[in-house]
Design a protein around this nucleic acid. Sequence first.
DNA 1: TTGCGTGCAAAGGTTTTGCATGGCA
DNA 2: TGCCATGCAAAACCTTTGCACGCAA
Lengths: 138, 138
Amino acid sequence: MTYQTKQKEMLLEYLKASEGNHLTAADVCEYFKSQGLPIGQSTVYRRLESLVSEGIIKKYTIDNQASACFEYVGEHSHHEGCCYHLKCEKCGKLFHLHCEEIEALEDHIGKEHEFSIDPVRTVFYGTCKDCNKGGCHD
Amino acid sequence: MTYQTKQKEMLLEYLKASEGNHLTAADVCEYFKSQGLPIGQSTVYRRLESLVSEGIIKKYTIDNQASACFEYVGEHSHHEGCCYHLKCEKCGKLFHLHCEEIEALEDHIGKEHEFSIDPVRTVFYGTCKDCNKGGCHD
DNA sequence: TTGCGTGCAAAGGTTTTGCATGGCA
DNA sequence: TGCCATGCAAAACCTTTGCACGCAA
């Protein structure tokens, strides 16, 4: 049995509105505090953790980042090929990547190399468009 | 200017000997302590961090694991034609991947998404053949 | 009313930092 | 002899846990 509470509702709404961004637990806490509707940090962690296990949000860690990031991925998980990340080594920006080609590669590696890729954990490192132009110094 | 110290040397030697395994800072500390040649933990962290920035070892985090893992990836720096890595999150094994499909993807991402992938730094995380069979428990 | 959810505070674990000392060049 | 590297301890962080109270059903 689970109860519907105001905190659960607010949290999910915020995460949904932030789709496409990655948030840390601290970000979430700060947001609600700034709204004058603080949610206890233990509640935030507990709720986040259960949403992860329900598959509604994803949890991941990026190198050089101390705390975990969470990201809304939807309440009805579409097909698995969700979202990969591209991380720029120069400016540190994180980009999202959805494309058929990568799903094809995922499939190829699964079949030919017998390795199941975990899209959530996999990050492509490299240099983004702006930094390739030499103009980015973040 | 940097000095060559016994700690640096021992640490690098140990990491190199552990190629293919993932080690936490705590693992490293324990190892040297068990050898009767303890290295202070702050030194371990500092040294590990600088090796990461030199590209000699790689740092990453596995889901559900509190502490970061480090892994030797070689002192051979960036040279073309090198391969991508597949890292099993369950058993920790590291696999090498050479294939046309991934080069095609690299090309695609470069052209269509304007992002230059760095093959050396990019690691695909997932589950290997053996662990997919359910027989692997680290 | 029942018992899950919440919030606070404290605990637990990992990583970083300050500072005096050690040791390489 | 300079000065970087080290080690210890403490601080800083992030996350989890214990417990009493609040609140949905």
